[in-house]
Amino acid sequence: MKVVRVLNNNVVLAVDETGAEAILTGWGVGFQAKPGQPVKTDKVTRTFRPENDRDSDTLAQQLAALDPRFLAAADDALRAEFEDRGSATVVALADHLSVAAVRVAADAATAAQPHPLTAEVKHLYPAEYAAGERILAHVNKQLELDLPQVEAVAIAMHLVNAGFHTDGLAETYRMTGVFGQLFAIIDTSFDIELDRQSISAARFITHMRYFFVRVSEGRQLNEGMSVLKDSLQLSHPQAVTCASRLASILELRLGAPLTDDEVSYLALHVARLVGEHHAAQ
């Protein structure tokens, strides 16, 4: 590989023999390096490649701006959890952890206050939350820190966000808040309390996560599933009514009308959620 750009002594943008660009990090990898020179491969400890058509220079600048200790800890922790950790996720997590460490150093009591979405994250994303707890423990041990348990929630949100390949957490936070509202409406409609960690709940959450993606891309389901709608109206009329309420909330929150097919699939998931709940009683 050859050096394309030196960001600092520890980060360089390089290109391999196929023309593919990568960002290489390691103590001294950029020291006295010049564009066009071979990369000091013995200095390289980590290799990052931009994904989803992201710009290599931007990723390189982001990596160069990070504290190397937090970058290493974030990358190691994510590698322990996932086969493909994703460069953008490493950057986002490393940046978050470094800021969290500053907050704890400034005011540990305030930094440890509960996250407003703790309950929603634990219920809606149990796998990501469990991974967040393990990543937090890994980082605390590697960096000899004492980041509070509440950071597992924020880490989980980054993991959820990674599944949608977006640049910020705003959409993930909004999505999580909407999910909590939808479950509350179903609970109220049927006078029950759904198990957010049930199989049907997991399926509903997965469906809704991809629904958000479809809406953002302007391609809702529209396959003419009138048979499904008619069948549900006969067999599960209360679920259809509840789905209409959910659809109204989603249209209000997302600013886009739902297709009949999307509402029908909402009703199907509501029927499954309520059916599983009653079967478990």
Rank of each mutant, 00 (worst) to 15 (best):
L7K: 13
N8W: 12
V11M: 09
T18P: 03
T18L: 13
G19K: 14
I23F: 12
I23D: 06
G26Q: 06
G28D: 13
V29F: 10
F31S: 02
V39I: 12
K40C: 04
T41M: 13
D42P: 08
R46G: 04
F48K: 06
E51H: 00
N52Y: 00
A60M: 12
L66I: 09
P68M: 04
L71I: 05
A74S: 11
D75T: 13
D75G: 03
D76L: 08
R79P: 04
S87A: 14
V91E: 15
A92Y: 05
D95P: 00
H96C: 05
V99Q: 12
V102W: 04
V102D: 15
V102C: 01
A106T: 15
A109M: 08
T110N: 11
A111V: 10
A112N: 08
Q113R: 11
H115I: 02
L124W: 05
E128H: 13
A131C: 01
E133P: 02
I135K: 02
K141V: 12
Q142D: 12
Q142S: 14
L147V: 02
Q149A: 11
V150D: 06
A152P: 08
A152R: 12
V153L: 08
A162R: 03
G163D: 14
F164N: 00
F164R: 04
H165I: 00
H165P: 00
G168M: 13
L169E: 14
A170L: 08
V178K: 10
G180C: 05
G180S: 13
A184I: 11
D187V: 02
I192Y: 08
R196C: 02
R196D: 15
A202G: 12
F204M: 12
I205A: 07
R209Q: 15
Y210A: 03
G218T: 14
Q220R: 06
L221I: 04
G224I: 06
S226T: 14
S231I: 10
P237R: 05
V240E: 05
R245K: 04
I249G: 00
I249N: 01
G255N: 01
E262N: 08
S264L: 04
Q281S: 14
